[in-house]
Amino acid sequence: MSRKGVGIGAFDRSRLTSRQFASHGSSLRASNTEALTTQLTVFRSLLQQFAQTHAKDIRSDPAFRAQFARMCTAIGVDPLASSSSSSSGAGGGLWAQLLGGSVNDFYFELAVRVVEVCSRTRGENGGLIGLKELTERVSQGRMEGSTEISADDVKRAVETLKPLGGSYAIISVGHKEYVRSVPRELSNDQASVVEAAQVLGYVSVSMLRDNLGWEKARCQTVIDDLMSEGMLWVDKQTRGEWEYWSPTSMMDTEGVMEPAIEGG
């Protein structure tokens, strides 16, 4: 009776098969999801475990910390950004929970110190401080001998300050990186002068004129601009042309000059 398979019963059968397919498909999907969920859970717990067992290393070893942060970036996890969104609800706190107490706090504490140093030195450098010098200053502040801090850490810490507004940023001028703590962009001319000052620690009008091919007035204008923003210090005791010094070289440890006075 069912040999032909073309009777009314065929409809039933095909309906049955398609239902079976559908249920099989959904069960497949379900198991897929389950597998993924398990994987995610495993991954989560592994990462958590990793962060916990290596919390000390993450806190104390700047190279390890940088590697860890890089790994997180590679797998699409931003250990810092996640916590800043913790205010936006449960999902945001995930990584903060996983890594919190070790990584997050580390960068936030560091960020606080970065802000301290930047605002303390703003008078002398106009809010532009070399990343290297800033790192040294920040490290000096924490003499307890605990954690070493790398420039990489400071950069990440500065990035955590982004939500506070546009004033904190990392900028590159020439071959040097700076942290800017004032909401002010350097013009191209200003950046050129800051870059030129990296070479000897200072610039002068004729030096700029000869090296950049600018007119005298343009050199003086840019210098005056930077002076008025506190980013250059003038030295009038040169017996010749005035020299304008970058305050960065004042803080540079491997600076151009050795200690000035020998004792008697």
């Binding site: 003038v234 030295d235 304008y244 070289s249 004042m250 050795e258 200690p259």
Partner: peptide, 8 residues
């Protein structure tokens, strides 16, 4: 102290 402009 070894920064020349410190004295101006």
């Amino acid at each position: 102290y070894s920064f020349p402009a410190f004295f101006t």
